[in-house]
């Protein structure tokens, strides 16, 4: 049985990224936990893209699109409503953020190259843009974006 490279890459991404995110979200100060929750989106969305390519079902890109849209919204929820808990240490993990952005860009480029030009590639590029922009903005929100929120 030939080893499907896409599914192998998805397994590595899912296993490594998921385990790291889970460890970060269960241990440590609230600052680290929120950053780990943010990284979950950037770890799982590329895995979904790789899975859609590995199973040969372009319909699964819709799942990645939704995660790229709603994952950062989830992080914004915590950034806004956990403000009191985060007062002590403002979490800033820009190294991690840019690494995740780089990984997402690599995965999107690989899947785009395998898909070829057309409407499907435009959709993949939109997913990649939303994923990277969402990741960066959510990190920005966590590291001091809600200073002027006083209980709203």
């Amino acid at each position: 049985m030939a080893v499907n490279g896409w599914i192998l890459a998805a397994t590595v991404c899912l296993g490594g990224g998921g385990a790291a995110a889970l460890w970060g979200v269960t241990t440590g100060p609230p600052a680290r936990r929120v950053v780990a929750q943010n990284m979950t989106t950037s770890a799982l969305c590329p895995a979904l893209l790789l899975l859609s390519q590995g199973y040969g079902r372009p319909a699964y890109v819709d799942l990645a699109l939704l995660l790229a849209l709603l994952g950062p919204v989830g992080t914004l929820v915590f950034a806004r409503l956990l403000g009191d808990d985060l007062e002590g240490g403002r979490p800033s993990a820009w190294g991690l953020t840019w690494t995740a952005a780089g990984l997402s860009a690599v995965v999107v480029a690989a899947v785009c190259a395998a898909t070829g030009p057309g409407r499907a590639m435009v959709k993949l590029l939109v997913v990649g843009a939303l994923l990277i922009a969402g990741n960066v903005i959510a990190s920005r929100a966590l590291s001091g974006g809600f200073r002027g929120v006083r209980g709203g």
């Binding site: 899912l14 998921g18 269960t26 979950t40 989106t41 799982l44 895995a47 899975l51 995660l67 915590f78």
Partner: peptide
Amino acid sequence: LVLSVLGSVLAVLFT
């Protein structure tokens, strides 16, 4: 926070 992670992991499991 953990439930948010669990939700996304469950979605990947269903996929």
